[in-house]
Write a protein that binds this DNA or RNA. Structure first.
Lengths: 238, 238
DNA sequence: TAGTGGTCTAGACCACGGG
DNA sequence: CCGTGGTCTAGACCACTAG
């Protein structure tokens, strides 16, 4: 278990404070000076904690006025595009049908171009993920063997993110997402229990490790009937 | 013209440095100590600049190792979900057909629920936006008159974001986005020059001002044939 | 014009990566 | 072990909001 930094502890405590006092969007938090005094830390540490909370969409600050709760609007049923924790943390009762696990000497071009000049041997994992028994995403993932040296059907039935971070002790640091909308092929439609030509959101994810290398390229084809997404932008962005 | 903070200047300079030296993804930047010396600022200022660049997906840091370029992958034709600057800054040759401008005493329920207990009088603006003459998004926007007191066809033909930030001198601070995929209605399909039942990505945007209030609720229906999106997550997110 | 957040400094010490 | 980034402090001064 990693030990938390002071500013992470402060951030957690502020989150608790919001929950305990049932603060809603627009409600005011104590001023920085008070936070400094009550947590017995320096102003910079409080600012770091608040900055973290702002990035996560929890609070916003108005200079000269105060710090306010940025209540996430009603997010029921929406999947966050912000988090890098996979789907399991957001959607309930996720199960996975493992369609295939293949070992490839090198991935197809659409994936290879991202791995650059690495050792290219990889796993290809195809899954159909369901929530409450209803298929909601068809998944095709490529994992570099260099970083994911072992993969089995049993592992793939669970959360790959948990496996990677806990089982392999690799840290997923950030991701690039490319998204577009297309019509389902017959094969895809069958798996998702939809009709060919029905709409689908396709998300092409590139996942980066702590060393800055891409280790996982995935293509997710979502069932349009039970997939909604949200994205909270914070300020200071460009 | 707003004067830039020191850390913003440093961030701009580092961005320049990357460009001038043609640094690619994975290339190393000078170490913090060197940046401190060459910019003649304190370490905290450098960190603030780097943190800004990290949020924007430009660099990433590895403790104990260095600071590296996080080259945005090939983003040609992709629209960022990160920025709050509207579409004009990303897509080229944007023109807008203004379909209608209506003044409403109060917006429909799907919008009203976000405005809460404000003065509800608002403009409803419907536009068809085109790039190089090809329709790519159908837009329905609601602006609270309290913050956007005047709107004309001439204004609506240009960038609403420019009008709001420059003409009205209001600052757009952050946004919530809700996204889903659906089939086009006949009316929508006609406007987008597609067929009824064709796929569409719908984005419901809530835009917040510097005072934390929602002033604009928009529904954007994208033409699936010429709309691709990307989203770069930075680390430290949840 | 008082109050609150924002920027910036100088420096101490910690924690991780890689030879 | 050395070099690098990460955390944290104490305090000065700036900039914006709101009554």
């Amino acid at each position: 278990m990693r030990i938390l930094k002071k500013y992470q502890l402060v951030a957690d405590n502020i989150r608790e404070y919001i929950k305990d006092n049932e603060l809603k969007r627009g409600d005011k938090l104590p001023k920085i000076k008070d936070l400094v005094d009550s947590f017995n830390v320096s102003k910079a540490t409080i600012l770091q904690a608040l900055s973290l909370l702002a990035k996560q969409g929890t609070v916003y600050k108005i200079q000269g006025s105060g710090i306010f709760v940025r209540q996430p609007a009603d997010l029921h049923g929406y999947m966050s595009l912000l988090t890098n924790r996979g789907i399991s943390g957001i959607v309930k009762n996720v199960t996975s049908d493992v369609l295939s696990i293949d070992e490839l000497d090198e991935p197809p071009e659409k994936v290879k171009k991202y791995f650059e000049d690495e050792e290219l041997a990889c796993y290809r994992l195809r899954r159909l993920r369901k929530t409450n028994g209803k298929p909601f995403v068809l998944e095709e993932s490529y994992f570099l063997k260099k970083y994911v040296p072992f993969l089995s059907k049993e592992i793939a039935q669970g959360s790959m993110f948990k496996y990677i971070s806990e089982g392999l002790n690799e840290e997923i640091r950030f991701s690039d997402k490319f998204m577009w909308v297309e019509k389902l092929s017959e094969n895809e439609a069958n798996k998702l229990e939809l009709k060919p030509g029905d709409p689908a959101l396709v998300v092409n994810d590139l996942y980066y490790l702590g060393n800055g290398k891409i280790f996982d390229v995935s293509f997710l084809t979502y069932n349009y009937q039970n997939s909604k997404f949200f994205d909270q932008s914070s300020d200071e962005i460009i």
